Simulated scan of single mutants.
Amino acid sequence: MILYHGSNVLVDNPILLKANRTLDFGHGFYTTTSREQARKWAVIKSRRENSDKGIISIYEVEEDILKKNNLNVRIFRGASKSWLKFVLDNRIQEGYIHEFDVVKGCVADDRVYACLNAFENQFMDFDTVIKELKTYKLNDQVSFHTVKALNHLKFLDYEEV
Score class of each variant (00 low, 15 high):
I58N: 12
G105Q: 03
L17W: 00
Y59V: 06
I97F: 14
M124I: 07
E159M: 14
V112Y: 01
T32P: 06
K40R: 11
Q93E: 11
F144C: 07
I15N: 14
S57L: 01
D52G: 14
R74W: 01
L10G: 05
K148F: 04
T128D: 12
N50V: 12
V103D: 09
G26R: 09
I58S: 13
S143R: 00
G95V: 10
F100G: 04
K104D: 14
V61P: 11
D109L: 11
L16T: 03
N139L: 07
Q37F: 07
L153E: 05
S7C: 05
K131E: 15
N70R: 13
E63F: 04
N90Q: 09
Y4A: 07
S7T: 04
H27N: 13
A114F: 11
S82W: 04
H152P: 01
V129P: 02
E159Y: 15
V107F: 04
E160K: 13
G54V: 09
S46W: 01
S82Q: 07
Y96M: 08
F119D: 08
A114S: 15
V11A: 15
R47H: 08
I56G: 01
L84P: 03
P14A: 05
V102L: 07
E62F: 01
F100N: 11
D127H: 07
R74F: 00
D157Y: 00
L133D: 12
I56Y: 09
E36V: 15
F86S: 13
K137I: 12
D157L: 01
N13I: 10
E94G: 05
L3M: 03
L116V: 10
W83R: 05
V43S: 11
D140Q: 00
D127Y: 00
H98K: 01
N8R: 00
F76C: 05
L23F: 02
E160I: 08
N151Y: 06
D12H: 06
F126Q: 08
F119E: 08
K40F: 14
E49C: 03
I130F: 01
I15Y: 04
V103G: 02
N139G: 15
L84R: 00
T32D: 12
T128M: 12
R21C: 13
L10D: 08
A149V: 02
N20K: 03
T32R: 07
G95F: 11
Q141N: 03
K104R: 14
R74P: 03
E160D: 02
I130M: 07
R39G: 02
T33H: 12
I55T: 12
I97D: 15
T32V: 09
D89F: 02
P14T: 11
A149S: 08
R35Y: 15
V147D: 15
E99L: 01
N117D: 13
K148I: 10
F25E: 09
E36R: 07
A19K: 13
D101Q: 10
E159T: 15
I65Q: 02
E132G: 04
I2P: 02
L156E: 01
E132K: 06
